[in-house]
Amino acid sequence: MNVFRLLGDLSHLASILILLHKIQTTRSCRGISFKTQALYVVVFLTRYLDLFLGDWVSLYNTAMKLFFIGSSCYILYLMKLRFRPTHDPAIDTFRVEYLVGPSLILALIFNYKYTLVEILWAFSIYLEAVAIMPQLFMLQRTGEAETITTHYLAALGAYRGLYIPNWIYRYFSDGTVDPIAVIAGLVQTGLYLDFFYVYFTRVLQGQKFELPA
């Protein structure tokens, strides 16, 4: 565990806590894409299958996996049941089959081993890389976002971004490279570049997150 990896994981943890805080305090899931959140549930369930296969890594690893599965399911519950009226499906219109289909095809072609667990793992990596697209698409459509929502997105974007120096560090420290994770991670981080530009130039200067018309 190096500092980049730890900061990345903490950033991921923080993003979920920020999102939960936003939903609980405003009693609303306005501005949050249900589709993106549902994709994260699929990502975590397909990636963390190893929890149930007895591949023990560490207490940290198991606790984080359980937290990500549990919190993502809880967020879906909040959006779909508890605060259902505050979610507007009419602006959450990205077609998820354009993300799930290609991710599945890629996973069938590019994986480390032709086993169900490895194919699902690769699928979860590809799907995670693009799962934010319905959310970013929604932001693009509405052209604005609550500040707390932008902090959520910034923490979530920083998470995979911080994995990049972690991979570079690991290449030099123990010679390991995971090309599937690295390529998908670069794509995932790349998707946030536009968002980060506006976040740094507007939100962190105390202005509202607004896209030019």
Binding site: S58, M64, D178
Partner: peptide
């Protein structure tokens, strides 16, 4: 055996 190089990442 071929497989993932890294199994501890999240």
């Amino acid at each position: 055996a071929r497989g993932r190089a890294v199994k501890d990442e999240l």
